[in-house]
Amino acid sequence: MTATEKINTDKKINQNLVCTDHLVSGEKFEILSHESGILRTYPVPENLEKYYESDAYISHRDSSRSLQDKIYQFVKSYMLSKKAKWIRAEIKQGNILDFGAGTGDFLNKMKSFLWKVEGVEPNKMARDLAILKNLDLKSDLYSIRDNKYDVISLWHVLEHLPDYEKKIDEFSELLDEGGILIIAVPNFNSYDCKYYKENWAAWDVPRHLWHFSRNGIQKKMEEKGFLLMKEKPLKFDSFYVSLLSEKNRPGKTNLVNAFLRGLISNLKAKNTGEYSSIAYFFQKKPK
């Protein structure tokens, strides 16, 4: 049974926002309320791995073939320096675990500042590319259970994890007292989400299993024993997500409109704080 058929046959689920997997399958998934400020994708496919099997899924590769690839890689290079600067403003030097490390570029940036680095990346193709950068990424957390870290980072990863609450508990155990957990996720209260609605690319069903508002993730992290230190807007995301969202809409992609919507989203967020994506810095509460 396909995910689309499962939606049509399950009468117990209320109809909410229905989104299409534009990247791989063309199947439809629902966005349902889970708890205050947190939404979930339904249904969750049994074999999630096949929904990542696309050349267009560029976070697991280093391609610069298409214009979209080139834009992505340019912005990524710029943001690597910004992320390192944000972290070093809190801790000048230490050890860091990057969970969902992709091909390892962020860890290499931190290495350039003499940080001790460790990475976890489930995707084998991405791990193989990281080997070429002299990084030995692990496939899961089990091989680093005895380590402790000053910082653990998840850059657009938490929304992919079926057991995200359990993982947060595991990250807490791996952090030193006063350690920092960085979580970057899309924000469904942003202007670009409200404009593009079911075509908003950051729904990214079914790869994104969870969807967060600012209040939702802050409340959840407080329940898990973390205090919010600061928020850092990921301003380029509004432009990139708007470009992908335009492609999801019927008709010809409107690049001018994508730029305009990304710009408006950032301008509105200057007053509201509701940026398209936000990196949250949470500090582990002392016991």
Score class of each variant (00 low, 15 high):
Asp10Tyr: 00
Asn257Leu: 14
Asp192Leu: 03
Lys284Phe: 04
Ser213Phe: 07
Ser63Cys: 07
Gly37Pro: 05
Lys268Cys: 11
Lys28Cys: 04
Gln68Cys: 00
Asp163Met: 07
Met1Lys: 03
Ile13Pro: 02
Cys19Glu: 04
Thr9Tyr: 04
Tyr42Gly: 02
Lys268Phe: 14
Asn95Cys: 11
Glu27Phe: 01
Thr272Ala: 01
Gly104Ala: 02
Phe281Val: 03
Lys133Met: 01
Gly102Thr: 00
Tyr51Glu: 00
Leu228Trp: 05
Leu154Phe: 09
Ser139Tyr: 11
Asp237Leu: 10
Val205Lys: 08
Glu46Met: 09
Tyr72Val: 01
Val44Met: 02
Lys220Trp: 03
Thr20Ala: 13
Asp140Pro: 08
Lys220Ser: 09
Gln218Thr: 15
Leu97Lys: 06
Ser59Arg: 12
Lys111Phe: 01
Glu222Cys: 08
Lys166Arg: 07
Lys111Leu: 13
Gly37Ile: 07
Trp210Cys: 06
Phe188Asp: 06
Lys6Val: 11
Lys85Phe: 13
Lys268Ile: 15
Asn257His: 12
Ser265Glu: 08
Thr4Asp: 10
Tyr195Ala: 02
Ala184Phe: 10
Asn254Arg: 10
Asp128Val: 06
Ile87Trp: 07
Asn16His: 06
Phe188Thr: 01
Arg88Glu: 14
Glu223Val: 10
Glu177Ile: 10
Glu246His: 07
Lys138Pro: 00
Ala89Glu: 15
Leu260Ala: 11
Phe212Asn: 01
Gly26Lys: 08
Val185Lys: 05
Tyr195Ser: 04
Gln93Lys: 15
Lys194Ser: 08
Lys92Cys: 03
Thr4Glu: 05
Asp69His: 15
Lys109Cys: 10
Lys148Met: 11
Thr20Phe: 12
Pro286Gln: 12
Pro206Trp: 05
His22Tyr: 15
His156Gly: 03
Ser190Tyr: 12
Glu5Phe: 08
Thr272Arg: 06
Leu228Ala: 07
Asn215Ala: 11
Gln15Met: 13
Asn189Ala: 04
Leu181Asn: 12
Gly178Val: 09
Trp210Ala: 03
Tyr51Trp: 02
Ser112His: 05
Gln68Asp: 10
Tyr42Glu: 03
